[in-house]
Amino acid sequence: MSTVAYTVFWICGLLLVHIFAGYPLWIWLQARLFPRPVRKRPITPKVTVVIAAYDSAAYIQAKLANLACLGYPREKLDIIVACDGCHDDTARLAREFGDPRVQVLEFPTRRGKAACLNNAVAQARGDVLLLTDVRQKLSPQALRDLMANLADPAVGAVGGELMLSDPDTGFAQSVDAYWRYEKLIRHAESRSGSTIGVSGALYAIRRELFEPLPEGTVLDDVLVPMRVIAAGHRVVFEPSALAWDRATQAPMEERRRKIRTLAGNCQLIQLAPWLLLPWRNPAWFRFVSHKLLRLLGPWLLLGLALTSACLASSYLLCAVTLALLALGAAMVVIGRLQPAAVRWLPLRLAMAFFYLNLFAAQAVVTFARNRGLHLW
């Protein structure tokens, strides 16, 4: 029994190290030793901006005004706003914005983001699609910076960088810490080949590479890039193309969004099982390491905690592991009781790690109970 527990201890420990440290280190080394630079140059192809919106009256005109200020030729930019069964004035306000380049598609029933994107792309006239969410503000040069990457014929899609502003609370600072860690991984993936995900707030794709999404798809910003990679093109990350959003300030505010996003990774396997096949998915190792194994993180932590507690009296390594887990738990308790203390980096990282795994566990349970993730 002790041998079995010790084997489980090592399996859980090694997988956790791989997920949160080994894979990021491996991809960073690959980017450093074997970089694949993008051959950028200024280009201005015809671009169609696609926005899927649900009850976004509070944001839509500010978003359209922001797009109107992009440093891009007006005659080469048009905008499609797909309103997904909105109950507010989103469609009316978009029409009244007064820009002839704006086309509004209004659907009477709520079908989900993926269906809206499919309908909007079918109406698009641009050679390139710029997909962006309604809430975030884009930097004036964002579109030009994205297009420069598409001058390289090997690049099929390019994602921008989401910046989180106003991380005022301790929780917001932990979210910001996690997002910085995530962007470091994406940047390394991009420099060494392809990143497997982009930010839904801002990404561009050659129109001919966009395939209609299965209805109900949650993570278009993962499935679309993975299809581009499978088609033999690169997906890269452009850190100078910025989209700004406000950092989530409280756990309950973040919980719903994060659980839905993480559960979307489970849904991806249901919708596109080819992602699990190394001979069909050129980025299989990256996809499994970056996306799927993170869903196992909380269960691996549980297994590590149980086995280290059982074996602490027999193995020094297990005793040390148990002590480190206890220290991490204590830091989380301190962070929850004293939010101001989260300004200390180790505490901020502990909080980010805790919430990431808590939401991952809840996401797996949520998906197992209810696979209808198509709504906003």
Rank of each mutant, 00 (worst) to 15 (best):
M1R: 15
V4R: 07
Y6H: 13
C12A: 09
L14A: 15
L16N: 12
V17Y: 07
A21E: 01
A21Y: 07
P24I: 09
W26S: 04
W28C: 15
L29K: 06
Q30N: 11
R32S: 10
R32W: 08
R39A: 13
K46P: 00
K46G: 11
K46N: 09
V47P: 00
V50P: 06
I51R: 07
A53N: 04
S56P: 02
Y59S: 10
A65R: 14
A68E: 06
G71S: 14
R74G: 07
L77P: 00
D78T: 15
D84N: 15
G85P: 07
G85Y: 09
H87E: 12
D89G: 07
A94I: 15
L105Q: 10
F107P: 10
R111D: 01
K113I: 10
A114W: 02
A114R: 06
A115E: 12
N118M: 13
N118S: 11
V121K: 02
A122F: 06
G126S: 13
G126M: 08
G126I: 11
V134G: 02
R135T: 06
R135A: 12
Q136N: 11
L138R: 00
A142W: 00
N149Q: 06
L150W: 03
L150F: 04
A151N: 05
V155E: 03
G156I: 08
D168Y: 03
T169I: 08
T169N: 04
V175H: 04
Y181G: 09
S190R: 14
G193L: 01
I196K: 02
L202K: 00
R206M: 09
F210I: 01
E211I: 11
P212M: 03
V218R: 04
L219G: 03
L223V: 08
L223P: 05
L223A: 14
P225G: 14
M226R: 10
V228K: 01
H233E: 04
V235A: 13
P239D: 01
A241L: 08
A243M: 03
W244N: 08
D245F: 09
E254M: 15
R260V: 12
L262F: 11
A263F: 03
N265T: 13
C266P: 00
I269R: 04
Q270P: 00
Q270S: 10
L276C: 15
P278N: 04
W279E: 03
N281P: 05
N281Y: 08
N281I: 04
A283L: 01
V288C: 03
H290A: 14
R294V: 05
R294E: 00
P298G: 03
L300K: 14
L301M: 10
T307M: 02
S314G: 05
L317V: 06
C318W: 00
A319N: 03
V320G: 01
L325S: 10
A326L: 13
L327V: 11
G328F: 15
V333R: 12
I334V: 11
A341H: 11
L345F: 11
L345N: 05
L347E: 01
A352R: 04
F354H: 15
L356T: 10
L358S: 10
A363T: 05
V365E: 10
R371L: 02
H374S: 07
H374R: 14
W376N: 12
